[in-house]
């Protein structure tokens, strides 16, 4: 089983992961007026086209707004929820935990349909915030898992020690718990931000024509021959993903440095 077989399968996986990334990045720097693959020449034209296209630029702006709204909502809901589920013993703790992660397990199209029905009934369609709320609900577990894993590695005796040293509950949280779970909060925040700026299914059902987010705008423009700015937008997404992965890896090592268990 070892040796060549494993090496071959690893190579295959690397190839499968790399090919779409390579195609996107390569296409985003193609020369020519129209998008071809493989590109005949290299240039930054697609990115210039992206900046020049007001509609795509506005969609990018909306996606960033959605990303920030998702981050704020996720932090408000997810951090206290993760702390409660990990640290407190209360009735229905386990079923509640399962319920909170149901959002990520439910098929997106089903959740999206539910949000469409809800926000239509509320008459809220046409603004960005219903999209942000929907994305937050389905992606909240990513932030909660991240915060929870930080909490698990945080020695609960640190909080007890703080109390014996005269710290009130609020002070213990601010000066001991919060700095301790900060790596988890940061990595969870990055994750839900990237998921927020790139979300498609919920946005597709909840958008109206004047609040297209970037993924919707890209999808819409792909009905004809693909314009170069779409390749640039896809390239931006890949770069954002790379940035997040690199940041998360360095956070992980920071966490291990600060919170290694003796």
């Amino acid at each position: 089983m070892n040796g060549p077989v494993i090496r071959l399968s690893v190579a295959l996986v690397i190839l499968l992961v790399a090919v779409p990334l390579a195609i996107v990045l390569l296409a985003s720097v193609s020369g020519g007026e129209r998008l071809t693959f493989p590109p005949e020449s290299l240039s930054l034209n697609p990115y210039r086209a992206l900046i020049g296209n007001g509609e795509i630029r506005a969609a990018l702006g909306r996606s960033l707004i959605v990303g920030f709204q998702v981050v704020v909502l996720s932090l408000i809901a997810g951090v206290p929820a993760a702390i409660a589920l990990v640290r407190f013993r209360f009735r229905f703790r386990f079923p509640l935990g399962l319920f909170m992660i149901l959002g990520v397990a439910t098929p997106l199209i089903a959740s999206a349909f539910a949000f469409l029905a809800l926000f239509t009934w509320m008459g809220s369609l046409g603004s960005l915030w219903p999209i942000s709320v929907g994305i937050t609900v389905v992606n909240l577990p990513f932030l909660m898992f991240s915060v929870a894993s930080s909490l698990f590695s945080l020695d609960p005796r640190l909080e007890e020690a703080a109390a014996t040293l005269g710290a009130e509950k609020v002070q213990t949280f601010l000066f001991v718990t919060l700095p301790g779970i900060m790596p988890g909060i940061l990595s969870g925040t990055l994750m839900v931000f990237v998921l927020g700026i790139s979300e498609f299914v919920i946005s597709l059902l909840l958008y109206t024509i004047n609040i297209q987010t970037l993924p919707i705008a890209m999808f819409a423009s792909l009905r004809g021959p693909p314009p170069p700015e779409v390749a640039a937008a896809a390239g931006l997404y890949v770069l954002a993903a790379v940035l997040v992965v690199v940041t998360l890896t360095s956070l992980k090592s920071t966490e291990q440095f600060f919170y290694r268990n003796d």
Binding site: D155, R157, L158, E160, A161, A162, A163, T164, L165, G166, A167, E168, Q171, T172, F175, V176, P179, G180, F258, Y259, D262
Partner: peptide, 30 residues
């Protein structure tokens, strides 16, 4: 926090994100 005690834990329970100074100063600040 109102019992006016101090407790040393077997694991020491030093605050890993704080400097030595801040660890010692913690109860005084609190």
């Amino acid at each position: 926090h109102q019992r006016n005690i101090g407790m040393v834990f077997q694991s020491l329970a030093l605050f890993p994100h704080m400097s030595v100074f801040d660890n010692i100063a913690f109860p005084l600040r609190m």
